[in-house]
Simulated assay, not measured.
Amino acid sequence: MTTVVGLITDNDETAYREEVRDLAGWCQNNNLSLNVTKTKEMIVDYRKRSTEHVPILIDRAVVEQVESFKFLGVHINNKLEWSKHTKTVVKRVRQSLFTLRKLKRFGMGPEILKRFYSCNIKSILTGCITAWYGNCSAYDRKALQRVVHTAQCITGAKLPAIQDLYTRRCQRKALKIVKDPSHPSHRLLSLLPHGKRYRSAKSRTKRLLNSFHPQAIKLLNSQPQPGLRHG
Score class of each variant (00 low, 15 high):
83 S>W: 04
75 H>A: 11
101 R>D: 05
38 K>N: 09
99 T>Y: 12
61 A>Q: 13
92 R>L: 05
20 V>I: 13
50 S>W: 07
96 S>K: 01
19 E>L: 14
13 E>M: 14
60 R>P: 05
68 S>L: 07
33 S>R: 10
72 L>M: 06
76 I>E: 02
51 T>S: 07
72 L>Y: 01
44 V>L: 08
10 D>Q: 08
42 M>K: 02
19 E>V: 00
93 V>S: 04
59 D>T: 00
37 T>F: 07
13 E>V: 14
48 K>N: 11
58 I>M: 06
40 K>C: 10
69 F>A: 10
80 L>T: 09
11 N>V: 12
45 D>Q: 03
96 S>W: 00
56 I>C: 07
52 E>I: 13
97 L>N: 02
96 S>T: 04
9 T>S: 14
79 K>G: 11
102 K>A: 06
79 K>N: 14
78 N>E: 06
32 L>W: 04
22 D>L: 05
61 A>T: 06
32 L>V: 05
19 E>T: 15
92 R>T: 04
81 E>N: 12
53 H>V: 14
58 I>T: 05
102 K>Y: 08
21 R>P: 00
88 T>E: 08
31 N>I: 13
74 V>K: 05
38 K>M: 06
44 V>S: 02
51 T>V: 08
73 G>P: 06
15 A>E: 14
45 D>I: 01
35 N>R: 04
47 R>A: 01
22 D>T: 12
99 T>K: 09
63 V>P: 00
102 K>G: 10
70 K>Q: 15
76 I>R: 02
68 S>T: 11
99 T>V: 15
23 L>I: 10
35 N>I: 03
59 D>A: 05
29 N>I: 03
63 V>A: 04
85 H>V: 06
70 K>H: 09
36 V>K: 05
45 D>V: 01
